[in-house]
Amino acid sequence: MIRVEGVSKRFGRNVVLDQVNLEVPDGATTVILGPSGVGKTVLLKIMAGLLAPDQGRVLYDGRRLGFGRFADNRELTGGIGYVFQGGALFDSLTVAENVALPLEETTRLARTKIRERTEEVLRRVGMAEHADLYPRALSGGMARLVAIARALVADPRSVFYDEPTTGLDPAIREHICAMIRELRDDGKRAQVVVTHDLAAAGLLANHTYMLRAGRLVEADDVRKEDYEQAYT
């Protein structure tokens, strides 16, 4: 269980998050909706320990997440897979090397085991035949798929997706939604998806929240007009 308690964050005078509370249960997919620029990514980065809140705290199974240069949250979180909006792949590494990186750097697994696991996740996302390409040769959708493979390779306890379907063609969008649903139905890990894609949210979520004016509200409490107002 990931619990966000009273988290606030501001940039200069702009209050992005204002006393946000959220519970993300294990084995379920939580979707945070909201238009672009509302602070969804900021919230996700705070939950992943990448950005320190001004106030509040984030708890993993009741234990407080650390922030800052000397924080090491690996044991606490049980591993986080994070799919960045732009993929955040390393230019100098091939697709296979990008995906293998977490295992290469954080485990003492034998190279053959790492290769097998890398091939397995690349097959799962449908990118096995592109293993030797460099990121510059990939389309946006393919980069997103490789990013998902990299997020899953170390079998993390939580997976965070930042706008996983934005700007993709319908086929890849559907493919990514199907993968997130498949992982949701596994019930092995907590997933958090932030998106402004209402249709995708409906397909993926066990729980849906909406971020508006720095506040998080449960989607059940949001009227259709509120959605429309938020997006206009």
């Binding site: 986080i80 955040a88 990186l101 977490p102």
Partner: peptide
Amino acid sequence: VSEQIDALEVMGVDPYRY
């Protein structure tokens, strides 16, 4: 800027060492 350092951090790869 392209969030690659964030990616290392969240993977558990120490970006200072890497």
